[in-house]
């Protein structure tokens, strides 16, 4: 594995019973890259995310993060190793406040022993203050500070998607996986989101893999695009190459590219 490869998937396959959701997929993410993963509905894109984050364990193949095998680890270990994600079908902690949603995600980075919280030791206050400060900073970066004390379920759609990103960032990732971050957003919100993704990438020195149907966003942001159809990678290249690729156009027939 070359040194610049941060994440490397080799021949990963995911079978559900008789159905192959992803077949023999290989790819790598270089440090600092922003890569798009596109394909028609049901192409297996979210399944790729689920394998990368350990929600599913691949039927075959391996996934390495910085030369360390992670494809057998449980999801929480993978998050701790530095892969964070957002969910396509938003999965916030609905009954908790926006602040609490983000504070929860600082769990592993600002961990203190359980007895510290029971006996209210100085370390408990120190860590909690750090969590509160960092949470505040993240919320203001994602323009959520005004809703900090609201329940997550009362946010607007766009705000929910941004909270998902804030939460993912709080885990301190090296690789960020964004699953349709612009879904349900209006053009203006999408434009703001595009700028935001560029910003956090700079600020947190991130490598990003992004699933998205909004092609303006994908073409604008991604340096490289992978196309999945029926679980098989049918193309990979620069946005320009993908735009002209015959198989991609075929796969998307009936859908706009």
């Amino acid at each position: 594995m070359s040194e610049t490869n941060l994440l490397e998937a080799k021949c990963v396959t995911m079978n559900f019973g008789g159905l192959t959701a992803v077949a023999n997929l290989s790819f790598e993410l270089k440090k600092g890259e922003l890569v798009g993963l596109i394909g028609p509905n049901g192409a297996g894109k979210t399944t790729v995310f689920n394998m990368l984050t350990g929600v599913y364990s691949p039927s075959f193949g391996t996934i390495h993060l910085e030369d360390e095998l992670i494809s057998k680890l449980p999801p929480y270990r993978i998050t701790q190793k530095g892969i964070a994600r957002t969910f396509q079908n938003i999965r916030l902690f609905n009954q908790l406040s926006v602040t609490d949603n983000v504070r929860i995600a600082f769990h592993t980075r600002k961990l203190y022993p359980i007895y510290n919280s029971i006996f209210l030791t100085p370390n408990f206050f120190k860590q909690e203050r750090a969590i509160a400060d960092d949470t505040k900073a993240l919320l203001s970066l994602l323009h959520l500070e005004e809703r900090a004390e609201d329940k997550a379920c009362n946010l607007s759609y766009g705000q929910m998607r941004r909270l998902e990103i804030a939460r993912a960032l709080a885990t301190g990732p090296k690789v960020l996986l964004l699953d349709e971050p612009a879904a349900g957003m209006n053009p203006q919100e999408t434009e703001e989101l595009t700028a935001l993704i560029a910003l956090i990438r700079e600020k947190f020195d991130l490598t990003i893999l992004l699933i998205e149907h909004d092609m303006t966003l994908v073409m604008k942001l991604c340096e490289r695009i992978m196309v999945l159809d029926y679980g098989i990678q049918i193309a990979s290249g620069t946005p320009l190459e993908i735009r002209q690729n015959k198989r991609v156009i075929e796969a998307y027939l009936g859908e706009e590219v």
């Binding site: 984050t53 929600v55 929860i104 600082f106 860590q127």
Partner: peptide
């Protein structure tokens, strides 16, 4: 009131998301 309590709450709210936040 601690990070451990919030971890418990997050499991109640959404176990898969909780795990994705690095919580065992």
């Amino acid at each position: 009131r601690s990070t451990h309590g919030r971890a418990l709450l997050s499991i109640r709210e959404d176990e898969i998301a909780s795990e994705a936040m690095g919580i065992n």
